[in-house]
């Protein structure tokens, strides 16, 4: 077994592209679900429309990068309104069902043959990240400490990603300290009480949905740019459930929990995945387990982890049981 490789890839995973993307998605989920109690099960769609907005503007229509970013952001906001208007007045589980359905709609449309000219079918879109890498201030070469280093392109994407994470966390911190955040947390507890105190609950829920979507959509941009390509199936429902697992792992309704949660989540996933692959390669399990089966073990562990976490430690690793967000309803 090559422990050195396992170690290096695991450490890299803690700050790598997946961690950045999922941290941004999870910060958004944390605003919606952790603070405001909204069950948005379509977070993947928010990342999807943003990434596709950028990719389609640049690669399909050949327009500028910044216009692509603007279109991606606008698409996210429009999606939030489309989902929010019918459901935010209704019970929490209606939003859950509508958002998960919407996420599937978005994915199916992206991958459809009918719109292949625009969205590129199941192959997705490439060639939209040139302008982004043209802005790269890092000279060609590798950056990092010893084996834990990245090339200049990855370094640039990760730098932008972590800056966005820092800004998002600062934003969440300021908001949740303010009376605005107080209203949001109160809505999570009991929206009728908040209504009886003269607050427009619908408006606050909508603001939370839009804000969570917009922060998530930054993750969509980073995802697309980091891979220099996007495919529709990146944005399946599993993506959203990963983001929820991350939020709950760190502890819902805490500023840094999505970031710490994302890092722990990916470190564990990469470590388990690599160790199992190596072990299978080295014949530790004989012929009982094949390399292709290792992929499913990851998901099995996520599902199991999510269940055990909610049963035995619903407040997450760092959460405080007294102010735990989850048992509000």
């Amino acid at each position: 077994m090559d422990w050195n490789t396992i170690f290096v890839t695991t450490v890299k995973a803690s700050i790598g592209l997946e961690t950045v993307v999922y941290a941004l998605a999870a910060i958004g989920v944390n605003i919606q679900f952790g603070y405001a109690g909204l069950l948005n099960f379509g977070q993947a769609a928010f990342l999807g429309v943003a990434a596709y907005g950028l990719a389609v503007i640049v690669s399909t229509f050949g327009l500028s990068f910044w216009l692509g970013i603007a279109v991606g952001l606008a698409a996210t906001v429009v999606l939030a309104f489309l989902l929010g208007i019918p459901t935010l007045r209704l019970r929490a589980d209606y939003l859950a069902i509508v958002t998960i359905a919407a996420a599937e709609i978005v994915r199916l449309v992206f991958r459809s043959v009918a719109f292949k000219d625009v969205f590129g079918g199941s192959d997705g879109r490439q060639n939209f990240s040139g302008d982004f890498y043209a802005m790269n201030p890092f000279a060609p070469g590798t950056y990092g400490i010893g084996p834990i280093s990245f090339n200049e392109r990855t370094t640039w994407v990760l730098t932008v990603g972590w800056v966005l994470i820092a800004l998002s966390c600062a934003l969440v911190y300021l908001l949740m300290k303010s009376p605005w955040g107080r209203v949001l947390k109160a809505i999570r507890e009991d929206e009728d009480a908040v209504r009886s105190l003269g607050k427009n609950v619908f408006s606050y829920k909508m603001q939370a949905l839009v804000l969570g979507g917009v922060i998530g959509c930054l993750g969509g941009f980073i995802f697309g740019l980091g891979q220099a390509s996007i495919q529709p199936d990146l944005f399946g429902t599993e993506f959203t459930f990963y983001a929820y697992t991350i939020v709950i792992l760190g502890g819902a309704a805490r500023v840094f929990s999505p970031v710490v949660g994302a890092a722990i989540f990916w470190v564990l996933l990469v470590f388990v995945g690599n160790t199992l692959s190596e072990a299978v390669g080295a014949g530790v399990f004989g012929t009982a387990v094949t390399v292709t089966q290792v992929g499913s073990v990851r998901f099995i562990l996520v599902g199991l982890g999510l269940m055990l976490l909610l049963i035995f430690r619903p407040q997450g690793i760092f959460g405080d049981k007294r102010e735990m967000a989850l048992d509000a309803r």
């Binding site: 934003l171 300021l174 303010s178 009376p179 605005w180 955040g181 209203v183 607050k199 603001q207 804000l211």
Partner: peptide, 10 residues
């Protein structure tokens, strides 16, 4: 402070 934008300026 219950307005989104003013909430950002303590």
């Amino acid at each position: 402070g219950e307005n989104f934008f003013r909430a950002l300026i303590p």
